[in-house]
């Protein structure tokens, strides 16, 4: 079976940021143009369970795995400094306050102000090229709060880069920091304000990041492969067929059976810690053909919308939940890659 991935056009990196919306003083020069080809990988490292708590502060890890995140991509940040986070915190709070006065941000309850905290999550980055992850938390100060009252977290978000393509990262001009994956959780109006602040401060651009069916299939296979080490409890796939009204098909597979199917499609020569796209496609075809034999319905006529296991879930519209921190690196590597590929370069 020919995998559809190989047929996708390669992306070119030329100087085409084309941001006419910024005034002439835009600090954007041009990229060096060294990078000409960015390929979608056809093999990946098999996920290995790692106790992330050894490298990352466990308290920070719980912040990352608690929420459902909405994904976006971000173009490289110009003159972003990890040493200036305190300054950014103040700037962003002031910016939100100003926006609120203009009436762009809708009030959430009776807050008088927001407190913004930028922090670095050390240890998420995998290679030396990866920039350290930045976590942003926005808390609201209630109007009639007693001094001892805890602040309420109203929004959180983070920018990260895990195993970013070295060719891509090398091709960046100095002064640019690439944190291509942006995850946010909270009211949409705050997300909009935070994004516009970043765009003004660091001359970057945000765009929504959906997950195509190939990415979802990768996650499905990678998570299933974790089963012997970490019980996935279930493998659930959700398709939507374009009937009138739309027909949702949810397919939940027993974890052990899913793993045995995955194990049977693994090729002899690739057991040395990598997973190939052919294996992923075979696995999905195996699941779909078992379904077809029973219901005679072509799942391929619909779209794969969601994949979930006890380790996490991912949706076509770019919503991701990571429930087990052991495979954080695997999932974030895949998402970083999607973000870099989605970027207009």
């Amino acid at each position: 079976m020919e995998s559809p991935v190989t047929r996708l056009p390669t992306r070119r990196r030329t100087k085409s940021y084309g941001r006419s919306c910024f005034e002439a003083s835009s600090r954007f020069a041009y990229t060096s143009g060294q990078l000409t080809i960015l390929r979608i990988p056809t093999t990946r490292e098999a996920p290995r369970a790692r106790n992330i708590a050894e490298r990352v502060d466990p308290e920070q890890v719980t912040l990352l795995i608690k929420n459902e995140w909405k994904l976006s991509y971000v173009t490289p940040l110009y003159r972003f400094r990890h040493t200036h986070l305190k300054k950014y915190s103040k700037h962003l709070s002031a910016f939100i306050a100003a926006e609120k006065q203009q009436g762009t941000a809708v009030e959430v309850g009776l807050e008088t102000g927001y407190r913004v905290t930028f922090s670095t999550v050390l240890g998420i980055a995998e290679t030396d090229e990866d920039a350290e992850t930045v976590f942003i938390q926005i808390q609201s100060k209630p109007m009639f709060a007693a001094t001892g009252d805890a602040l309420k977290v109203v929004w959180s978000g983070w920018l990260t880069c895990v195993n970013g393509s070295p060719e891509y990262l090398h091709s960046l001009l100095p002064d640019f920091v690439s944190l291509p994956l942006f995850c946010s959780s909270g009211p949409e109006n705050i997300t909009v304000v935070v994004k516009s602040w970043f765009e003004k401060m660091f001359d970057c651009r945000f765009g929504s990041l959906g997950l195509d069916s190939t990415s979802l299939q990768w996650l499905c296979a990678l998570w299933t492969g974790c089963h012997p080490d970490n019980n996935i409890r279930y493998l659930r796939l959700l398709w939507t067929l374009p009937t009138q009204p739309p027909l949702d098909v949810s397919y939940t597979v027993n974890p052990q059976d899913a793993w045995e199917l995955w194990n049977s499609v693994r090729q002899e020569d690739s057991v040395d810690g990598t997973v190939g796209i052919d294996e992923v496609k075979h696995f999905m075809a195996g699941l779909e053909s078992h379904f077809f034999r029973h219901f005679k319905i072509y799942l391929s006529s619909g779209t794969l919308r969601k994949v979930s296991t006890a380790l996490g879930s991912a949706q076509q519209d770019g919503k991701v939940k990571i429930l087990c921190s052991d495979y954080l690196a695997t999932v974030l590597t895949l998402l970083t890659e999607c973000a870099i590929l989605k970027m207009p370069i």
Partner: peptide, 20 residues
Amino acid sequence: PFRALIKFSSANLLVSLNHC
């Protein structure tokens, strides 16, 4: 057996299946 649970859902299932 290969154990699985299939759930079809729609605003009007019979119409959707008919169309399918």
